[in-house]
Nucleic acid binder design. Structure first.
Length: 431
DNA sequence: TCTGGGGTCCTAGGACCC
DNA sequence: TCTGGGGTCCTAGGACCC
């Protein structure tokens, strides 16, 4: 029997993370909000049962949340990222083929290659994985098993939704796989988004089964080669391999809505400088350097009576750099080109591209002076900056240009503590 | 007061080359 | 009553993912 794929997916991951550290949340409806406390991005089972939708704007539902005792949380990515690391380390230990046979797909999902051909063994492995992950991390997970990654996604949905599965479903061992596909909406297939789902519906294709049986020519012409991959995977032909090593990054983005609109060049310059610094920190953490900086700005698309305004531009340099000040300077150049007075800006972002490994950078031509920060002193300064902030917390030491009071900073009114990554955030011991 | 952040890939079309 | 063929690179826009 050919290899099978298992997909491990954490149940209501962010809500489950909050629950691990607060027993009073055991059976409560929990909603985790996006940055800026804007929309609901994760819900516990109890919150889903109340009809709270993914992505709904929270400010429209405050009264409803209060009435039903919904516990609200600002997103706490320091906590979720660390809990994810613990879950993934555990899965890695239990992968039958070793760590090479595991792919961390997202913050709460991992694929594992399973070679055993005895269905009972596969299911027993999955049940053991669930038990150990729950015991070691407190996070409940579900496991779907199938011949391809796309089918494993579908199997995982079944594992989550059908209580008789108790968290594990092996599509390879199911007597009637077509029935499972017939019970899955085409739009719920991995790789089929809203637009393609609507297009398919116009052609009478509503289930994963109907999508699977579509002619290749139709799929290729309307959904490109990626759609064809998806359809072949539904037929049980593996087209999407396990990614052992994460592919090299092509861009790094830091963008945020402002807690309050920014309407001066000074405020915008501060925000853009702060985002450029944050992006530079991510860059150095990955051991990369960037040659180009893109800045975009926009006003709120929701504000009535105000014209929507958005613009973007890019500036570059000959040699890639990982120096904060050099990248800030490029970002400022971009902002000067696109800033228009008179607008209430709601969001800005800084993207770094032209990424190379910092230790194997293309050198400038002889005779050209290196850009600011590309010498030994510049590298020492960045090492010191990162070391201080690693020890004392993010932005303990920062460029003044990134702003001190940051009136545009995002709102996070409901944040839980960073229980697992910050000693200062541990609750006081009661004696 | 008021609607997230961070990514990737594919295609079409234009500019440019010989 | 007439305008090649073949290629690369870049960009904008669209679609998808969690």
């Amino acid at each position: 029997m050919p290899a099978a794929f298992a997909l491990m997916d954490c149940n209501n991951f962010y809500a489950s993370c909050e629950r691990v550290f607060d027993p009073s949340l055991a059976n409560a409806p929990i909603v985790v909000l996006s940055n800026n406390d804007g929309c609901a991005i994760a819900r516990s089972a109890e919150a889903k049962a109340l009809g709270i939708a993914m992505g709904e704007p929270a400010h429209l539902r405050r009264g409803f949340y209060d009435r039903h005792g919904v516990r609200l949380f600002s997103s706490n990515f320091a906590l979720y990222g660390d809990m994810s690391r613990r879950v993934m380390e555990t899965v890695k230990m239990l992968a039958p083929g070793g760590p090479e046979d595991m792919e961390i797909y997202s913050i709460d999902e991992a694929f594992v290659r399973l070679d055993g051909d005895v269905p009972r063994d596969r299911e027993a492995w999955a049940r053991n994985l669930r038990r150990i992950v729950l015991r070691w991390t407190g996070i409940p997970v579900s496991v779907g098993i199938a011949p391809t990654k796309t089918l494993a996604k579908i199997a995982n949905r079944t594992a989550k939704r059908d209580p008789s599965c108790a968290g594990v479903f092996d599509l390879c061992a199911h007597p009637d796989p077509d029935a499972v596909l017939a019970a899955t909406d085409a739009g719920d297939v991995w790789g089929v988004g809203r637009r393609h789902a609507a297009m398919l519906a116009r052609h009478g294709v509503r289930t994963a089964l109907a999508l699977r049986d579509l002619p290749d020519v139709f799929v290729r012409s309307r959904m490109t080669v990626t759609g064809l991959c998806t359809v072949r995977e539904l037929r049980g032909v593996p087209c999407i391999p396990l990614e052992q090593a994460p592919p090299p990054r092509k861009s790094i983005l830091t963008s945020r809505c402002f807690g309050r609109p920014a309407h001066t060049f000074g405020a915008m310059a501060e925000a853009v400088a702060a985002y450029a610094c944050r992006a530079a920190e991510k860059l150095r953490a990955l051991g990369l350097a960037a040659s180009h900086v893109t800045v975009f700005v926009m006003t709120s698309p929701h504000a009535e009576g105000e014209p929507y305004h958005a613009d973007t531009t890019t500036a570059g340099r000959l040699q890639a750099t990982d120096h904060s000040a050099a990248l800030m300077a490029l970002a400022r150049t971009c902002l000067e080109r696109i800033y228009r007075p008179g607008h209430r800006y709601k969001k800005a972002g800084v993207m770094l591209t032209g990424l190379e490994r910092a230790d194997a950078r293309q050198q400038a031509l002889p005779g050209l002076t290196p850009g600011a920060g590309d010498d030994e002193r510049g590298r020492d300064l960045m090492r010191a900056l990162d070391a201080v902030n690693a020890k004392w917390g993010r932005a303990s030491l920062q460029y003044a240009g990134a702003g001190l009071d940051k009136p545009w900073r995002m709102r996070q009114a409901h944040c839980s503590r960073r229980f697992t990554t910050s000693w200062d955030d541990l609750p006081e011991a009661k004696s």
